[in-house]
C-alpha cells in the first residue's frame, strides 16, 4: 500500500509540475477550455486498450496525438478557432468512448483515475515524460509568448508560430495522457488550467507566473493523492479540491494586496 502511494506520489508530482508549467501558456493563450476538453479525447483510446488488451494509456495518447495534429491542421485550413474544433472533437470522442467501454467500473476508472494501478514502471515513465515535456516547453516558451504578444512580430523574427503551436499541442497531449492515471480524463484538464489561473492572479512577472503555476500544479496533485489515500476515495476530485483551495487563497492574496495599495 505504502509502495503504491509513493509511486502515485511520484507520478502526481511529475504530472503536476509539467501540467502546471504547460498550463501557464494555455491560460495566456485564453485556451483554458481547450486543455479541459482535449483530455476527453483520450477516452476512446483508453477503451480500445481495455478491449484489446494493450496499455490503455498508450491508446489514450495515440488518440490525443492524432486529435491534436488534426485540430492543428483543420485550424490552419479552415481558420476556425481551436476552441471550436476541440469542442466538436471532444464531444464526439466522449460519445464514442462511453459506447466502447466494456463495463461501468472501467469507465469510472478512466473518468476519475485510479492510483492503485500505478507501479515503478508508470512512475519512471511519468518522470521521464515530464522531464522531456518541461525541457521542450522551456525551449519554446519565449517564442510562444512573443507569438501571443504579436504573431506578426514573432513571424518577422523568423519564428514559425504554427509549427511551435503544433509542438505545444503535442506536449499537452503527452502530459494529459500521463495525468489521466491520477485524475482521470474528466478532471485532468483541471491540472492544466487551474494552477496557472491561480498563479496569474498573483503574478506581475512572467518568471514568477510560470514558476508558481508549476508549484501549484505540484501541490494540487501530490496533496490530492495523499488526501485521496487517507480518505480512501478516487484521487481526481481530491486533486480538484486542493487546486480550488489554492485558487481561492490566490484570490484572497490579490484582494488583500489591492486593499493594501
Amino acid at each position: 500500500m505504502l509502495e503504491t502511494l509513493v509511486f502515485s506520489g511520484v507520478v502526481a508530482a511529475a504530472v503536476g509540475v509539467s501540467a502546471g508549467y504547460l498550463g501557464s501558456i494555455m491560460v495566456l493563450e485564453k485556451m483554458a477550455l481547450v486543455g479541459d476538453a482535449l483530455s476527453h479525447v483520450a477516452l476512446p483510446g483508453l477503451a480500445l486498450g481495455i478491449l484489446f488488451g494493450f496499455n490503455p494509456l498508450l491508446g489514450g495518447f495515440v488518440f490525443l496525438f492524432v486529435s491534436a495534429v488534426l485540430i492543428w491542421y483543420l485550424g490552419r485550413v479552415t481558420k476556425l478557432s481551436f476552441e471550436t474544433l476541440v469542442g466538436a472533437t471532444f464531444t464526439l470522442s466522449l460519445a464514442i468512448g462511453i459506447l466502447l467501454f466494456p463495463n461501468l467500473d472501467a469507465l469510472e476508472e478512466a473518468l476519475f483515475g485510479d492510483i492503485t494501478a500505478v507501479g515503478l514502471t508508470e512512475a519512471l515513465v511519468a518522470v521521464l515524460i515530464s522531464a522531456v515535456v518541461i525541457g521542450l516547453t522551456r525551449l519554446i516558451y519565449r517564442k510562444i509568448v512573443l507569438g501571443l504578444i504579436s504573431e506578426e512580430l514573432a513571424t518577422s523574427k523568423g519564428i514559425n508560430v504554427a509549427r511551435i503551436n503544433l509542438l505545444y499541442l503535442l506536449l499537452v497531449s503527452l502530459t494529459v495522457a500521463v495525468g489521466i492515471q491520477i485524475t482521470g480524463t474528466l478532471l485532468v484538464g483541471f491540472l492544466v488550467v487551474t494552477p496557472a489561473a491561480a498563479a496569474k492572479i498573483v503574478s506581475t512577472h512572467l518568471s514568477r507566473y510560470y514558476t508558481l503555476s508549476a508549484v501549484f500544479g505540484l501541490v494540487s496533485a501530490v496533496a490530492g493523492i495523499l488526501l485521496a489515500s487517507f480518505f480512501n476515495v478516487v484521487p481526481g476530485p481530491m486533486v480538484v479540491i486542493v487546486g480550488i483551495i489554492i485558487f481561492v487563497v490566490a484570490l484572497i492574496v490579490r484582494w488583500r494586496r489591492k486593499i493594501g495599495s
Binding site: 501571443l148 504578444i149 512577472h205 512572467l206
Partner: peptide, 16 residues
C-alpha cells in the same frame, strides 16, 4: 529591421 505593430496583446499578460 525593427517593427512595432499597431496592436500588441500585452495588457493581460503577467510580464514585467
Amino acid at each position: 529591421i525593427g517593427y512595432v505593430p499597431q496592436i500588441l496583446s500585452v495588457r493581460d499578460m503577467p510580464i514585467s
